[in-house]
Simulated scan of single mutants.
Amino acid sequence: MKLLDTVRLNQDLPNEGLRAGAIGVIVEVYTTPDCAYEVEFVNDDGSTRAMRPLRQEQLDSA
């Protein structure tokens, strides 16, 4: 996975109001201390719904 890839969440994140299957875009890639991806999820109007760092195992390619 790389910057600006579209990804699909593969688990529910109830505290963020996100369900498995939500589509997001990688907006940052972290390599230390561990590999992680900052993913932005948006509403239908384009406003940010949630943005948070996620591990690779929490995501699938969309």
Results as ranks from 00 to 15, higher is better:
Asp5His: 13
Val39His: 05
Leu59Glu: 07
Glu40Asn: 00
Thr48Tyr: 00
Ala36Lys: 09
Gln56Gly: 12
Gly21Val: 06
Gln11Ala: 14
Glu38Thr: 05
Ser47Cys: 05
Phe41Glu: 00
Val42Trp: 00
Thr48Trp: 03
Val27Gln: 11
Thr6Gln: 15
Gly17Lys: 11
Thr31Ala: 12
Asp12Ser: 07
Asn15Tyr: 12
Leu9Trp: 01
Leu59Gly: 06
Asp12Phe: 08
Ser47Thr: 15
Glu40Pro: 01
Thr31Cys: 05
Gly46Val: 07
Gly46Arg: 08
Tyr37Met: 04
Leu54Asp: 03
Thr31Asp: 12
Arg55Trp: 08
Thr31Phe: 10
Phe41Leu: 03
Gly21Asp: 08
Phe41Val: 02
Gln11Met: 15
Leu59Gln: 08
Tyr30Phe: 13
Asn15Arg: 14
Leu54Val: 01
Ser47Lys: 10
Arg19Val: 07
Ala22His: 07
Phe41Ala: 03
Leu4Ser: 13
Glu40Gln: 11
Val42Thr: 14
Phe41Thr: 01
Leu13Pro: 04
Tyr37Gly: 02
Gln58Thr: 06
Pro53Ser: 14
Arg52His: 07
Pro33Arg: 07
Ser47Arg: 12
Val7Gln: 09
Arg8Val: 14
Asp12Ile: 05
Asp60Ile: 04
Ala50Val: 02
Asp45Cys: 03
Asp60Pro: 02
Ala50Trp: 00
Asn43Ile: 01
Val42Leu: 13
Tyr30His: 13
Glu28Thr: 12
Arg55Lys: 10
Leu9Tyr: 02
Asp60His: 09
Leu59His: 06
Pro14Thr: 11
Ala62Lys: 07
Ala36Arg: 11
Met1Val: 15
Pro14Phe: 05
Ile26Trp: 02
Asp5Pro: 01
